[in-house]
Write a protein that binds this DNA or RNA. Structure first.
Lengths: 218, 218
DNA sequence: CTAATAAATGAATGGCATTCATTTAGTGGT
DNA sequence: ACCACTAAATGAATGCCATTCATTTATTAG
């Protein structure tokens, strides 16, 4: 029984390295799953790895670095396989839903991703390569490929937030009488049924984008 | 000369109230303009109002409350006037561009807005009312109005982030050879010209959404 | 063998939002 | 006119956070 709870490691470099980026990434994901992004602190991360907080800084430069590692790991989970096997429309559809679903659980990463140079994220770059090759193969004019992908991504990120919104987000409360048009529209959407509102909106927007962009193909 | 720099106010309730929500909102906006959202701390906000930090908590419950005040103030700046005067397509177009431009300067608010019950933000609710009335008047089926607005908003929020991205965000760097399709697409977009890439992508996506949603009108 | 480097500990540091006891001023009721 | 209550300020904590630094120990290069 070498340890109970927190085994004290004596100061100095250990015989075998305890930490590496892959381990830090995995621990961060585990921690996020358990405690959410609020619980992801450098101290908690260190504790979950049975290490002093300062030890992390031998492997990452900052907490932002940790978020980048997580982001790149998650991007690899986005399903781009359809671009190899299916027509453009359904490939884009599957990719977009998968992309949204992955990041809906990780919206705190969105501000990081949105400003992230692709150089710093190899998996993300790989996704772009597959997607842009799919657009090209589908006859998309080259100079519009990036803009179309960016537009889709913007919609996807915004929609990922939408998934996390509380169910009563559109409850106009005491202002209902002064906002008849909006209140009525909210009511008639609710009356419609069981499908999640975020999914309805995402589907509506995505199909419009696919139809609009599909018309650009030569 | 009653004061140089920071006039010390003695403890206890002053004869006339120093703070109110409108003043806090205005000071927060001034501070954000000068120092960005990183500089918006409760301490800095208090200093700019010549007040102790704890005094703020007599008027707001938390920093999130301050962000909400700012958000609602900014939403009132979004231009919805076209819904009263112009055809649906151009009204949506003007609203969307204005909405994006306002929040492109305030992306740190987006995570707050996206999850914000409209009850808590009267100006925001007022905007929804005007927009949904415009959709209704244009012959939009009632049960799709909210979904269409949500989809547009998602696209707008995502695109607002895009505006703030660094110019070299798509520079694939040393990975250029392994990502020929993407690298080529980035190059041919750059070759195209002067318009800002974020504007091109926003226009492309917005026109697709307007065209797609326009077809839903009865 | 020795110098440089890598990877850990543990003890700061400074900043942050927030809370609380205290002080003072206005307000509503009798 | 008095008194209790509430509102609005100060100033001094509190606890958490990311990050830095001196120090220790082990591995690696020359």
């Amino acid at each position: 029984m070498p340890q109970t709870g927190a085994a004290r490691r004596r100061a100095g470099r250990p015989a075998a390295a305890v930490l590496d980026q892959a381990g830090i990434t995995a621990a961060a994901l585990r921690l996020i799953g358990k405690t959410g992004y609020d619980g992801l602190t450098m101290a908690a991360l260190a504790r979950s790895l049975n290490v002093a907080p300062s030890a992390l800084y031998n492997h990452v430069e900052s907490k932002r670095d940790v978020l980048l590692l997580v982001e790149d790991h998650l991007t690899a989970l986005v399903d781009v396989t359809a671009f190899a096997a299916e027509p453009w429309e359904s490939a884009v559809r599957k990719w977009a839903w998968s992309y949204r679903d992955v990041f809906a659980e990780h919206t705190p990463l969105i501000p990081v991703i949105a400003v992230l140079p692709v150089t710093d994220a190899p998996q993300t770059l790989a996704m772009y390569e597959t997607v842009s090759a799919g657009f090209r193969a589908a006859g998309f004019p080259e100079e519009r490929i990036v803009s179309a992908i960016v537009a889709l991504e913007s919609f996807i990120f915004g929609s990922a937030y939408d998934v996390t919104a509380p169910a009563d987000i559109f409850d106009s409360g005491s202002m209902a009488e002064s906002t008849p048009s909006f209140t009525g529209a909210v009511r008639s959407l609710a009356a419609l049924g069981h499908e999640k509102p975020a999914d309805v909106a995402f589907s509506l927007g995505l199909e419009a984008l696919i139809a609009g962009f599909g018309a650009l193909r030569e």
